[in-house]
Simulated scan of single mutants.
Amino acid sequence: MHSLSKRCGAEFFGTFWLVLGGCGSAVISAGVPNLGIGYAGVALAFGLTVLTMAFAVGHISGGHFNPAVTVGLVAGGRFPAKDIVPYVVAQVLGAIVAASVLAYIAYGQVGFDLKTSHFAANGYGEHSPGKYSMTSALVTEIVLTAGFIFVILGATSKGAPAGFAAIPIGLTLTLIHLISIPVTNTSVNPARSTGPALFVGDWALAQLWLFWAAPIFGAIVGAVAYRLVSSAPETTQT
Protein backbone atom coordinates (compact mmCIF):
# COMPACT_ATOMS: atom_id res chain seq x y z
CA MET A 1 0.00 0.00 0.00
CA HIS A 2 1.46 3.35 -1.02
CA SER A 3 1.49 6.32 1.35
CA LEU A 4 -1.29 8.90 1.11
CA SER A 5 1.17 11.52 -0.17
CA LYS A 6 2.27 9.26 -3.04
CA ARG A 7 -1.30 8.36 -3.87
CA CYS A 8 -2.31 12.01 -3.92
CA GLY A 9 0.69 12.80 -6.10
CA ALA A 10 -0.46 10.15 -8.56
CA GLU A 11 -3.96 11.67 -8.55
CA PHE A 12 -2.48 15.12 -9.19
CA PHE A 13 -0.50 13.98 -12.22
CA GLY A 14 -3.31 11.80 -13.52
CA THR A 15 -5.83 14.63 -13.38
CA PHE A 16 -3.28 17.03 -14.84
CA TRP A 17 -2.88 14.68 -17.82
CA LEU A 18 -6.63 14.27 -18.23
CA VAL A 19 -7.28 18.02 -18.36
CA LEU A 20 -4.24 18.87 -20.46
CA GLY A 21 -4.95 16.09 -22.95
CA GLY A 22 -8.72 16.28 -23.06
CA CYS A 23 -9.29 20.01 -22.79
CA GLY A 24 -6.12 20.66 -24.78
CA SER A 25 -7.48 18.68 -27.70
CA ALA A 26 -10.67 20.76 -27.56
CA VAL A 27 -8.90 24.13 -27.29
CA ILE A 28 -5.97 23.55 -29.64
CA SER A 29 -6.88 20.81 -32.11
CA ALA A 30 -10.66 20.55 -32.49
CA GLY A 31 -11.25 23.60 -34.64
CA VAL A 32 -8.15 23.72 -36.84
CA PRO A 33 -9.33 24.35 -40.44
CA ASN A 34 -9.13 21.20 -42.59
CA LEU A 35 -7.17 19.39 -39.87
CA GLY A 36 -9.43 19.71 -36.84
CA ILE A 37 -10.21 16.54 -34.91
CA GLY A 38 -13.81 17.55 -34.13
CA TYR A 39 -16.00 16.17 -31.36
CA ALA A 40 -15.00 12.57 -32.06
CA GLY A 41 -11.32 13.40 -31.69
CA VAL A 42 -11.90 15.24 -28.43
CA ALA A 43 -13.93 12.31 -27.11
CA LEU A 44 -11.13 9.92 -27.99
CA ALA A 45 -8.55 12.20 -26.37
CA PHE A 46 -10.38 12.17 -23.05
CA GLY A 47 -10.66 8.40 -23.16
CA LEU A 48 -6.96 8.04 -23.96
CA THR A 49 -5.91 10.24 -21.04
CA VAL A 50 -7.71 7.98 -18.59
CA LEU A 51 -6.54 4.82 -20.32
CA THR A 52 -2.88 5.83 -20.31
CA MET A 53 -2.76 7.23 -16.78
CA ALA A 54 -4.74 4.32 -15.35
CA PHE A 55 -2.01 2.02 -16.60
CA ALA A 56 0.72 4.44 -15.48
CA VAL A 57 -0.37 5.21 -11.91
CA GLY A 58 -3.56 3.25 -11.30
CA HIS A 59 -1.56 0.75 -9.23
CA ILE A 60 -0.47 3.62 -6.98
CA SER A 61 -3.67 5.58 -6.32
CA GLY A 62 -6.45 3.56 -7.91
CA GLY A 63 -6.59 5.94 -10.88
CA HIS A 64 -9.58 8.09 -9.92
CA PHE A 65 -8.56 11.47 -11.47
CA ASN A 66 -12.08 12.70 -10.71
CA PRO A 67 -13.83 13.73 -7.46
CA ALA A 68 -17.03 12.03 -8.63
CA VAL A 69 -15.17 8.75 -9.11
CA THR A 70 -13.68 9.05 -5.61
CA VAL A 71 -17.13 9.65 -4.09
CA GLY A 72 -18.62 6.85 -6.19
CA LEU A 73 -15.98 4.39 -5.02
CA VAL A 74 -16.69 5.35 -1.42
CA ALA A 75 -20.41 4.79 -2.01
CA GLY A 76 -19.57 1.49 -3.67
CA GLY A 77 -17.55 0.30 -0.68
CA ARG A 78 -14.25 0.34 -2.55
CA PHE A 79 -12.49 3.35 -1.01
CA PRO A 80 -12.18 4.78 2.53
CA ALA A 81 -14.21 7.93 3.18
CA LYS A 82 -11.36 9.41 5.24
CA ASP A 83 -9.31 9.90 2.05
CA ILE A 84 -11.95 11.79 0.04
CA VAL A 85 -10.69 15.29 0.91
CA PRO A 86 -6.97 14.79 0.13
CA TYR A 87 -7.81 12.99 -3.10
CA VAL A 88 -10.22 15.70 -4.24
CA VAL A 89 -7.76 18.47 -3.35
CA ALA A 90 -5.03 16.75 -5.39
CA GLN A 91 -7.38 16.26 -8.34
CA VAL A 92 -8.56 19.87 -8.37
CA LEU A 93 -5.01 21.20 -8.07
CA GLY A 94 -3.93 18.98 -10.96
CA ALA A 95 -6.78 20.32 -13.08
CA ILE A 96 -5.93 23.95 -12.26
CA VAL A 97 -2.24 23.51 -13.08
CA ALA A 98 -3.15 21.80 -16.36
CA ALA A 99 -5.52 24.63 -17.27
CA SER A 100 -2.71 27.10 -16.50
CA VAL A 101 -0.32 25.29 -18.83
CA LEU A 102 -2.98 25.06 -21.53
CA ALA A 103 -3.76 28.78 -21.25
CA TYR A 104 -0.08 29.62 -21.60
CA ILE A 105 0.23 27.46 -24.72
CA ALA A 106 -2.99 28.79 -26.26
CA TYR A 107 -1.92 32.41 -25.80
CA GLY A 108 1.01 31.66 -28.08
CA GLN A 109 -1.40 31.80 -31.01
CA VAL A 110 -1.86 35.27 -32.48
CA GLY A 111 -5.35 36.58 -31.78
CA PHE A 112 -6.28 33.94 -29.21
CA ASP A 113 -8.88 35.16 -26.73
CA LEU A 114 -9.55 32.96 -23.74
CA LYS A 115 -13.13 34.06 -23.13
CA THR A 116 -14.37 33.96 -26.71
CA SER A 117 -12.68 30.57 -27.23
CA HIS A 118 -14.83 29.09 -24.45
CA PHE A 119 -11.60 27.38 -23.26
CA ALA A 120 -13.33 23.96 -23.05
CA ALA A 121 -15.46 25.16 -20.12
CA ASN A 122 -18.66 23.33 -19.33
CA GLY A 123 -21.98 25.14 -19.61
CA TYR A 124 -25.70 25.01 -20.24
CA GLY A 125 -28.24 27.30 -21.88
CA GLU A 126 -26.51 29.80 -24.13
CA HIS A 127 -23.15 28.36 -23.06
CA SER A 128 -24.01 24.81 -24.10
CA PRO A 129 -22.43 23.90 -27.47
CA GLY A 130 -25.87 22.81 -28.69
CA LYS A 131 -27.81 25.37 -26.57
CA TYR A 132 -29.32 22.69 -24.33
CA SER A 133 -31.26 23.73 -21.22
CA MET A 134 -30.10 23.49 -17.62
CA THR A 135 -32.49 20.55 -17.08
CA SER A 136 -31.01 18.68 -20.04
CA ALA A 137 -27.52 19.35 -18.72
CA LEU A 138 -28.46 18.17 -15.24
CA VAL A 139 -29.99 14.91 -16.45
CA THR A 140 -27.13 14.27 -18.87
CA GLU A 141 -24.43 14.72 -16.24
CA ILE A 142 -26.25 12.63 -13.62
CA VAL A 143 -27.08 9.71 -15.91
CA LEU A 144 -23.70 9.54 -17.67
CA THR A 145 -21.72 9.81 -14.44
CA ALA A 146 -23.88 7.05 -12.97
CA GLY A 147 -23.08 4.89 -15.98
CA PHE A 148 -19.38 5.70 -15.69
CA ILE A 149 -19.25 4.63 -12.04
CA PHE A 150 -21.26 1.49 -12.83
CA VAL A 151 -18.66 0.48 -15.42
CA ILE A 152 -15.75 1.34 -13.14
CA LEU A 153 -17.12 -0.78 -10.30
CA GLY A 154 -17.81 -3.67 -12.65
CA ALA A 155 -14.49 -3.49 -14.48
CA THR A 156 -12.52 -3.39 -11.22
CA SER A 157 -14.52 -6.06 -9.39
CA LYS A 158 -12.95 -9.30 -8.23
CA GLY A 159 -14.78 -11.26 -10.90
CA ALA A 160 -13.58 -9.10 -13.81
CA PRO A 161 -10.49 -10.04 -15.88
CA ALA A 162 -7.44 -8.77 -14.00
CA GLY A 163 -5.27 -6.06 -15.52
CA PHE A 164 -7.69 -4.85 -18.19
CA ALA A 165 -9.93 -2.41 -16.29
CA ALA A 166 -8.36 0.69 -17.86
CA ILE A 167 -9.57 -0.33 -21.32
CA PRO A 168 -13.35 -0.41 -20.71
CA ILE A 169 -13.07 2.61 -18.42
CA GLY A 170 -11.26 4.66 -21.08
CA LEU A 171 -13.69 3.55 -23.78
CA THR A 172 -16.65 4.41 -21.56
CA LEU A 173 -15.33 7.93 -21.07
CA THR A 174 -14.94 8.22 -24.84
CA LEU A 175 -18.54 7.11 -25.32
CA ILE A 176 -19.74 9.56 -22.70
CA HIS A 177 -18.07 12.41 -24.56
CA LEU A 178 -19.52 11.31 -27.90
CA ILE A 179 -22.97 11.57 -26.34
CA SER A 180 -22.68 14.73 -24.29
CA ILE A 181 -20.20 17.18 -25.80
CA PRO A 182 -23.07 18.96 -27.62
CA VAL A 183 -25.06 19.17 -24.38
CA THR A 184 -22.58 20.38 -21.75
CA ASN A 185 -19.15 20.07 -23.36
CA THR A 186 -19.01 17.00 -21.07
CA SER A 187 -17.98 17.18 -17.48
CA VAL A 188 -18.75 14.01 -15.44
CA ASN A 189 -15.73 15.31 -13.52
CA PRO A 190 -15.88 18.33 -11.19
CA ALA A 191 -12.10 18.82 -11.24
CA ARG A 192 -12.04 18.91 -15.05
CA SER A 193 -14.79 21.55 -14.94
CA THR A 194 -13.09 23.67 -12.28
CA GLY A 195 -9.76 24.17 -14.05
CA PRO A 196 -11.09 25.88 -17.22
CA ALA A 197 -13.89 27.68 -15.32
CA LEU A 198 -11.37 29.53 -13.15
CA PHE A 199 -9.77 31.00 -16.28
CA VAL A 200 -12.98 31.83 -18.13
CA GLY A 201 -14.63 33.26 -14.99
CA ASP A 202 -17.99 35.02 -15.34
CA TRP A 203 -20.64 32.56 -16.61
CA ALA A 204 -18.38 29.51 -16.27
CA LEU A 205 -17.99 30.07 -12.54
CA ALA A 206 -21.68 30.91 -12.17
CA GLN A 207 -22.63 27.56 -13.76
CA LEU A 208 -19.90 25.49 -12.10
CA TRP A 209 -22.24 24.37 -9.30
CA LEU A 210 -24.06 22.03 -11.72
CA PHE A 211 -20.82 20.35 -12.73
CA TRP A 212 -20.07 19.53 -9.13
CA ALA A 213 -23.55 18.62 -7.94
CA ALA A 214 -24.71 16.49 -10.89
CA PRO A 215 -21.60 14.28 -11.28
CA ILE A 216 -21.33 13.63 -7.55
CA PHE A 217 -25.03 12.76 -7.27
CA GLY A 218 -24.75 10.62 -10.38
CA ALA A 219 -21.74 8.81 -8.96
CA ILE A 220 -23.70 7.86 -5.85
CA VAL A 221 -26.61 6.67 -8.00
CA GLY A 222 -24.26 4.54 -10.10
CA ALA A 223 -22.65 3.01 -7.03
CA VAL A 224 -26.01 2.14 -5.47
CA ALA A 225 -27.19 0.64 -8.77
CA TYR A 226 -24.10 -1.53 -9.07
CA ARG A 227 -24.43 -2.78 -5.50
CA LEU A 228 -28.02 -3.80 -6.27
CA VAL A 229 -26.95 -6.09 -9.11
CA SER A 230 -23.62 -7.29 -7.74
CA SER A 231 -23.81 -10.57 -5.84
CA ALA A 232 -20.27 -10.55 -4.50
CA PRO A 233 -19.63 -8.17 -1.56
CA GLU A 234 -16.25 -6.47 -1.69
CA THR A 235 -14.39 -4.83 1.12
CA THR A 236 -13.32 -1.21 1.23
CA GLN A 237 -9.82 -0.56 -0.07
CA THR A 238 -7.60 1.00 2.62
Rank of each mutant, 00 (worst) to 15 (best):
L210Y: 09
S193I: 02
A166Q: 06
P215M: 01
V139A: 13
W212K: 04
A160S: 07
A213Q: 06
A214R: 08
W212S: 06
S157G: 11
I179A: 13
K158W: 03
G163M: 05
T184H: 12
S193G: 03
P215A: 03
S187G: 04
A206M: 13
A191I: 11
F164S: 06
T194L: 15
A204S: 15
I181L: 14
L171H: 09
T172K: 05
V183L: 15
A146W: 09
A146V: 10
D202M: 13
T145M: 15
T156W: 00
T174N: 13
L210M: 15
L178Q: 10
V151C: 08
A214K: 06
L175N: 11
V200P: 09
T194M: 13
A204G: 13
L173K: 01
T140N: 15
G170M: 04
I142P: 03
L138H: 06
T174Y: 10
A166H: 03
A162F: 14
L175Y: 11
V183R: 11
G154I: 01
A146Q: 12
L198W: 09
G147T: 14
I149F: 06
L153V: 00
L175I: 09
L144Q: 12
L208R: 07
P190K: 04
G170F: 01
F148Q: 06
T156N: 03
G163F: 07
F164C: 04
F211P: 05
R192E: 08
F211C: 07
K158T: 05
V183W: 12
F217Q: 02
P190R: 05
A191S: 13
P168Y: 01
N189S: 10
L138I: 12
I167G: 05
G163E: 01
A166E: 07
S187I: 04
T145H: 10
P196R: 05
T184L: 12
V200G: 12
N185D: 06
I169V: 08
Q207N: 14
T194E: 08
W212E: 02
A155N: 02
P168L: 02
A213L: 15
V151N: 00
I216H: 01
W203R: 14
I179N: 11
D202F: 15
A166D: 06
I216G: 00
A160H: 00
F217W: 04
L178Y: 13
P215D: 02
L198P: 08
A155T: 00
I149T: 06
G163K: 02
P168F: 01
G170T: 01
G159H: 03
F150S: 02
T184A: 08
F164Y: 14
I167F: 14
V188F: 04
I179K: 10
I179T: 13
L178E: 09
S157P: 03
D202P: 10
A206Y: 11
N189C: 06
A165K: 01
H177S: 07
R192F: 11
F164H: 04
